[in-house]
Design a protein around this nucleic acid. Structure first.
Length: 879
DNA sequence: GCTACTCGGGG
DNA sequence: GTGTACGAGTAGC
């Protein structure tokens, strides 16, 4: 029998744990495999005192002497005690007792399911073959329950047919405007959407109101009981919804508690649904199933300005919600039959959208790939971060080679590490960017820089030279030493080699794969391999990590900085090009060439020269070409980029660290910013950009900009009177309440406003856009210039050497172009080709400028002329 | 510029 | 469940 692992847990029966593996066959049968005879264990240092301590513990059933190597500096294996006990849940107690006695304890904080999975080489969503006997049990809901004899890796790839359920609840608060409180406000409606038909339907709505197209119930209790029955009968593998982790599920569980219903929604008939509160956030676990919150994934994987379901569905699916405001739910609930029908439809569509997001955007592909690679169960991959995955993964790899891992650090240790880290750990090197607008810049990146450094110097906590000295070492540029590869190959470098090579193979396979389904899975896999490889460096510098080493983290970043400096030196001093910017693992090289193909050739040449010169597997790759490059500051730039793709050169505008859209900016800002960036980068015309900006300012002043483009939107999260400060949108709501209380926005609604002309406080001049259009009120153009379009654009123009006062003109008609044109009148006749143009220079004091001051003259009063590598010139010729 | 606090999503 | 872990954006020094 072959199954794909969905979930693993254990039950304690008569002093013995039984591991349960929940999975699904290729045909879609649900299987639960029971494994008996595997016992919990951990390691401690070997002393007589420890033996004495352990002999008093009734839980301990076996103490063996074993040879292992602790992780923490290069060393030879030594003797440890392997302690086996009867009950996994007793481990913390014994662990703390030993720790209290000053005894070093290893691997005593590993979840039992993961101890088991690690020893048997099992991963979440992995296919496995089971040799088994049939068993019958009434404790588990599955098509087949088997007693596992042996587990072997499976042959299948892809996924078993997974059955999905999407759900959404509706409720109304007794307190007007507030978010409903599960302790008090009942659920009125539950909508369910099925990926496989359930009793001939693909959706179902349950309600305590008895009309419309719903399953109706006399009480909330009966409705919730039926809800549980449907889940049992439909038996989904995956349950989804929008914000179900932090709203629907905690709410349903509390309502079940109030109604004295045990929340048995999982595949174990005895285990209730668990809602663990982790720092103000809930994590839901349901035995044998996986809860996927579309909202949480979208927030992580997509960069959007807002994450409300309406916005997300529209942006990502092009699908719309039913238009019902939160403040209207009560009205529709208590309203006519038609009103109620609309509410039912509203709820149903919310579930449909949650389902569609998951299915159409393939939201879980990445997480399945991460699970398979790291060994983590899908639910935990979704709920927890990088640390869990890395530690799961590393445990196996270290154990395989006879290493044992320390327990996680306590709060005191974490605090000390945090302090040391802050003080000593330096990050990547960021080069001060060369000011001004650049053309024809080649961008080169190190291929997986940190993983490559780790592999090149065999960097690992198991090879780091501390107390014991290996016969042969390799020294890093920082001076730290590691055992050389022939003596002891580091576990982490070896893992990275496997991950990187595997990724190469998958990328190759991807090129010859046509089937879109297979392609998607391969793509998710190569992505996950990259993510895992890149996470190791960060993990070793993470204060809560079990395998934490500041010396190692510092070695890695130091090498990074060292190699970037070396690279810059080689390019500038040996090859002879200027490096105009660089960040951590990249260099931006300016050349005189402007043909894309020739630039690529130069790029490849630089790549080869540098890679040959640097040690080990350090590889600098040609990445792309910036036809135009405008740095604002470190880590902030914009560029017109060309990279070679499948269909020749692919161009796009790249922005790093620059926002063009922000919640509190109106549309005019993003429109204008985008346009100006395009003029500067693509047309290389600063004058036109300035003109465009002035045009916008002019039309603002003349009230020619449509009101729609000036609307600013903010959320009102609480009652207007409970706001301490004065805020425009709140003041507007107060105004609207006196005008027409029924139409005024309520709590949780978004408030749209524009700022109008007047004498009072700015906040008091916020007005309803509709009202402004009806009454023809005048917009405060000054506000829009100073507070909206100017702040982002000022930074861009500053980078081009144009100050705010110059930009706004201030009456002086003195633009760069005019000055250049005026230069035609110059008496000097010397000409230079435009390709040699470096900038501008004062004829009198030699001060250089990247842009001509708009007065046309230097501070010293001297005349500004062109400067080139061949000297000064009065004019420039274009060829 | 940095660090501390808030709030998101949901109804 | 042998676990305790957000993160961007903004307000406040």
């Amino acid at each position: 029998m072959e199954i794909q692992i969905l979930d693993v847990d254990y039950v304690q029966v008569d002093e013995k744990p039984i591991v349960r593996i929940f999975g699904k066959t290729e045909k879609g049968e649900v299987v639960c495999g029971f494994y008996e005879g595997y016992m919990p264990y951990f390691y401690v240092e070997k002393t007589d005192a420890v033996k004495e301590l352990l002999s008093k513990e009734p839980q301990v059933i076996k103490i063996e002497t074993v040879k292992r190597t602790p992780v923490g500096g290069y060393q030879k294996p030594k003797e440890f005690l392997k302690v086996t006990i009867t009950n996994p849940s007793k481990t913390p107690e014994i662990r703390e007792k030993l720790k209290g006695a000053g005894v070093k304890v290893y691997e005593a904080d590993i979840l039992f399911k993961y101890r088991f999975m690690s020893d048997f080489g099992l991963s979440g969503m992995q296919w496995i073959k089971l040799e088994h006997n049939g068993v019958q049990t009434h404790t588990v809901r599955a098509d087949k329950c088997v007693q596992i004899k042996k587990i072997k890796p499976g042959d299948n790839s892809g996924n078993a047919p997974l059955r999905l359920l999407a759900l959404d609840i509706e409720c109304v608060s007794v307190q007007k405007g507030a978010v409903p409180d599960a302790k008090r406000d009942p659920i009125i409606l539950i909508s369910l959407v099925f990926s496989e038909r359930y009793e001939g339907r693909d959706s179902l709505v349950l309600s305590t109101r008895p009309d419309g197209d719903v399953l109706s119930f006399a009480s909330e209790k009966e409705m919730l009981e039926e809800f549980a029955r449907i889940i049992e009968k439909y038996d989904p593998d995956i349950i989804t919804g929008y914000n179900i982790n932090n709203f629907d599920f905690p709410y349903i569980l509390e309502r079940m508690r109030q109604n004295k219903i045990k929340p048995l929604l999982g595949r174990c008939k005895q285990k209730s649904v668990m809602a663990r509160k982790v720092m103000a956030r809930y994590k839901i676990s349901i035995t044998g199933r996986v809860v996927v919150d579309s909202f949480e994934i979208i927030k992580k994987d997509f960069s959007l300005t807002r994450y409300g379901l309406d916005f997300v569905a529209e942006a990502l699916l092009g699908e719309k919600k039913v238009d019902v405001k939160h403040s209207e739910i009560e009205k529709f609930w208590k309203g006519t039959n038609k009103d109620f029908k609309k509410l039912v439809e509203y709820s149903r569509i919310d579930s449909v959208l949650a389902m569609n997001l998951l299915v159409k955007l393939h939201l879980i592909d990445k997480y399945i790939a991460l699970s398979r690679i790291s060994g983590t169960l899908l639910q935990d991959t979704l709920d927890s971060g990088e640390t869990t995955r890395i530690e799961n993964f590393t445990l196996r790899e270290f154990n395989k080679k006879g290493f044992i891992v320390p327990c996680k650090p306590d709060a005191k240790e974490v605090a000390e590490r945090e302090k040391a880290r802050k003080k000593h750990l330096k990050g990547g090197f960021v080069l001060e960017p060369e000011k001004g607008l650049h053309s024809n810049v080649i961008v080169l990146d190190f291929l997986s820089m940190y993983p490559s450094i780790i592999r090149t110097f065999n960097i690992c906590p198991t090879t780091l030279v501390r107390n014991q000295r290996p016969e042969k070492v390799i020294k890093t540029p920082l001076g730290t030493e590691f055992a050389s590869k022939e003596i002891a190959e580091g576990i982490i470098p070896k893992i990275l080699e496997k991950l990187m090579k595997n990724r190469g193979k998958i990328k190759k396979k991807l090129k010859t794969t046509e089937d879109p389904e297979k392609k998607r899975l391969l793509n998710a896999e190569q992505w996950a391999l990259k993510i895992m490889a890149n996470a190791f460096y960060g993990h070793m510098g993470y204060p809560r990590a079990k395998i934490y080493d500041l010396d190692i983290a510092n070695t890695v970043t130091y090498c990074g900085r060292y190699f970037i400096h070396e690279t810059k030196k080689i390019i500038e001093e040996e090859i002879g090009y200027k490096v105009v910017y660089g960040d951590t693992d990249s260099v931006f090289v300016e050349t005189g060439e402007d043909d894309l193909e020739k630039l690529r050739e130069i790029g490849e040449q630089i790549s080869k020269t540098v890679s040959d010169r640097l040690p080990g597997i350090m590889t600098l790759e040609f990445e792309k070409i910036f036809k135009r490059f405008l740095p604002l500051t470190k880590k902030r730039y914009m560029a017109w980029s060309f990279s070679s793709g499948m269909n020749g050169w692919e161009e796009n505008i790249e922005m790093k660290g620059i926002e063009t859209v922000r919640r509190d900016w109106c549309e005019l800002v993003s429109d204008t910013t985008k346009k100006i960036i395009e003029i500067v980068l693509k047309e290389n015309n600063v004058k036109d950009a300035v003109d465009y900006f002035r045009g916008v300012v002019k039309s603002l002043v003349k009230s020619e900009v449509p009101v729609k483009k000036l609307v600013i939107t903010k959320n009102m999260t609480k009652q207007p009177k409970s706001y301490a400060g004065i805020q425009p949108h709140i003041e507007l709501v107060k105004k609207m309440q006196t005008r027409n209380p029924a139409e005024a926005p309520g709590i949780g609604d978004r408030v749209s406003y524009v700022i109008i002309k007047g004498t009072g406080l700015l906040s008091k001049r916020a007005e309803d856009p509709v009202y402004v259009m009806e009454k023809g009120l005048e917009i405060d153009s000054n506000y829009y210039i100073e507070n909206q379009i100017l702040p982002p654009l000022e930074r861009i123009f500053n980078a081009l050497g144009i100050s705010k006062s110059e930009l706004l003109g201030n009456g002086k008609q003195t633009l760069l172009s005019d000055i250049i044109n005026n230069n035609n009148n110059h008496k000097e006749t010397k000409e230079i080709p435009i390709t040699d143009l470096k900038g501008f220079i004062c004829k009198n004091c030699q001060k250089t400028y990247s842009h001509v001051p708009l007065t046309g003259f230097c501070e010293c009063g001297g005349e500004i002329v062109f400067s080139s590598s061949k000297g000064m010139a009065a004019s420039v010729v274009c060829k």
